[in-house]
Amino acid sequence: MQKIPLADWIETIVSWMEDHLVFLFDIISSVIEGVVNAFNWLFMLPHPLLFIAILGVLAFLVGRISLTLFSVVGFLLIYNLGFWSQTMDTLSLVITSALISVILGVPIGIWCAYSKGAARIITPLLDFMQTMPAFVYLLPAVTFFSLGVVPGVIASVIFAIPPTIRLTLLGIKQVSGELTEAADAFGSTSMQKLFKVQIPLALPTLMAGINQTIMLSLSMVVIASMIGAQGIGAEVYRAVTQLQIGKGFEAGLAVVILAIVLDRFTQRLFTSNKRRR
């Protein structure tokens, strides 16, 4: 029996897109690069110690004293180990991908909640995106966007967007039927129902999705470094290829610190929100 030429088809599609959609990729590329650079510029603007001080104050505002202590000590350690600018590169990349994931994911999630057809098509697509080995995304990303931070962001978004979509969908579906009925009964338009009732009530679930998205995009940083995205992931990758165990551990530790701080921050942000409500 003959093999189905699936690989050939994919390559044909990719090369067609490469030929015909190049202007689109250029636009996307420059936008993403602009956003990443803007964040990076912002994070590098203050002296690291000032940055850490600001971070400490923010941590104190959203959370508890333990979060403040951990953030300050953790980031001081990163500074001390000499990974400051790499960590800021990574932070810019993660925040950019999270931002894009939210901007795309929340509306898609809402669309799925409203349209059964959309949900039926998009849900398996999400399964596909999450289970496909992340390395596979790197190839087309590199083909379309060449090397550097942009394909890293793209691959991160593809890998990290599913939780935002899924949990937005879930959050909106979970709003009790009686409440949406009440919103209808008083003569709300669909938009009013969405923004005044459904989204506020879905917010805790939605925030959990965004938290997951940030974590997943952080988990992509090492992989993204393989296609030339600068940052702490690149340090890890270099250490691994050169068998420098100590160096690898240091860089890995920086990733862990960044992950924990980001996770606690987003979680806190949501719980303090809830307390205020």
Partner: peptide, 10 residues
Amino acid sequence: SMVFQKFALF
């Protein structure tokens, strides 16, 4: 206007 069994308050 409508009043609901389980109140349906936001």
